[in-house]
């Protein structure tokens, strides 16, 4: 019962970060700021949802895989954010007119 309550709390927190990422994408003034808002959704939103689900899994193998997914998502999100930031920077400096 306590575990379920903990799960729900963490899932709701995760949802909060996803929604804030959404709001950032919608309202933030420039793309760098939006990028900043999004990485929060990526890392914390998914992380909290994952942690919330950890209390509901049937066995340890599931838990290991959940954590693995999140760790990889962290690496992937960092690389993605970097790539997008560099791409944006290049565009703003006017080296690349194609987008």
């Amino acid at each position: 019962m306590i575990l379920d309550a903990l799960s729900v709390l963490l899932l709701l927190l995760g949802l909060f970060f996803f929604v804030s990422g959404l709001l950032g994408l919608w309202r933030f003034p420039d793309t760098f700021a939006r990028l900043h808002a999004l990485t929060k959704a990526d890392n914390l939103g998914l992380g909290l949802v994952m942690t919330g689900l950890l209390f509901q899994v049937p066995d340890v193998l599931w838990a290991i895989k959940f954590i693995l997914v999140w760790l990889l998502a962290l690496v992937a999100s960092a690389v993605n954010a970097h790539l997008i930031a560099v791409f944006l920077h290049r565009q703003q400096e006017g080296h690349d007119e194609s987008a």
Binding site: G14, F18, G21, L22, L25, T31, R34, L35, L38, A41, D42, G45, L46, V49, M50, L53, Q56, V57, F66, V69, A73, S77, N80, A81, I84, F87, L88, Q91, A99
Partner: peptide, 24 residues
């Protein structure tokens, strides 16, 4: 294009989160 790339990133993370939930 960059704003759309950002949105794709958010959509991807949401998709992964939904998959994890559905798995349970």
């Amino acid at each position: 294009l960059t704003d759309r790339l950002l949105a794709v990133q958010l959509l991807g993370t949401l998709g992964v989160a939904i998959l994890l939930m559905l798995a349970v």
